[in-house]
Design a protein around this nucleic acid. Structure first.
Lengths: 135, 135
DNA sequence: ACGCCTATTGATAATGATTGTCAAAACCAT
DNA sequence: ATGGTTTTGACAATCATTATCAATAGGCGT
């Protein structure tokens, strides 16, 4: 049976408060900063559960970190993520969904799960980046 | 200056011999099995270099492992990967490329790097999977 | 409200992939 | 062959994540 604990709620709340995607570690330290003495392992478990239940999105950053984000809808969608500040824009394009499924079945594949995410620099971070000297 | 060593060649060769994507660790043990006393760190370095030069593709499995594959062309393309046997089909669709770039710039993003890969079960593995009892 | 049973927590150890370190070895131009 | 520098490789270090397991706390039946 699934029990209701304040830890689970804390993770859910903090995830909702976050702007974009957060790592488990990041969320844990954010909670600690807020005064929660929640354990790291618990954060990992809570996030895994949320992702399982469809209450959270999860994806992998190019560095191999797992990132999570509160998910309002169970709908399938993808993301445009700023690799500098973490700003996230949800994008939802049926054409792409269909393309992925078709491409898979065209080759006899089933249970296709596509990984479609775009990492980049958002407008603000692009402006900042142009300040750095060209090496 | 970049030097030519038999280790570098061994990695390149073994990568070409592999059917689909391989992990650095897997490639290392494959080489060891073949009698090569190559070091693990060297394999990582060689793979990173190959990916840098465009001679190898790299992507992340859903488990967070980095996978590599020999890449014949420098062209940008994506993959359809069987999550069971590792069979890989290269797919190349300009429409998707454009979509990704447009979607990014539409939101003011620059330096967009998209991650578009489809994991699934190939025809053969789908057949095998249907043998398992329905839980 | 109380107590019991069990799911959950959390500190820590374990894991597993990847990267850093640095002396020794190998490469290449001379 | 020699010198100078790159590359190697054994091992330690790191980092995120998972497993362990005793202690805790949730919630159902009473």
């Amino acid at each position: 049976m699934k029990r209701n604990t304040w830890q689970r709620e804390a993770v859910r709340t903090e995830l909702g408060r976050a702007e974009g995607f957060v790592s488990a570690q990041g969320l844990h330290s954010a909670l600690h900063t807020s005064g929660s003495p929640i354990g790291l392992a618990t954060v990992y478990r809570a996030l895994a559960d949320l992702a399982l239940e469809g209450d959270a999105d999860s994806l992998q950053s190019p560095d191999g970190e797992s990132l999570y984000r509160a998910c309002s809808t169970t709908d399938h969608h993808h993301h445009l993520i700023c690799r500098n500040c973490g700003l996230t824009v949800e994008i939802e394009v049926d054409a792409i969904e269909n393309w992925a499924t078709e491409e898979a079945s065209k080759h006899g594949f089933t249970e296709a799960a596509h990984v479609i995410d775009i990492f980049g620099l958002c407008a603000a971070c692009t402006a900042l980046a142009s300040d750095r000297p060209t090496p």
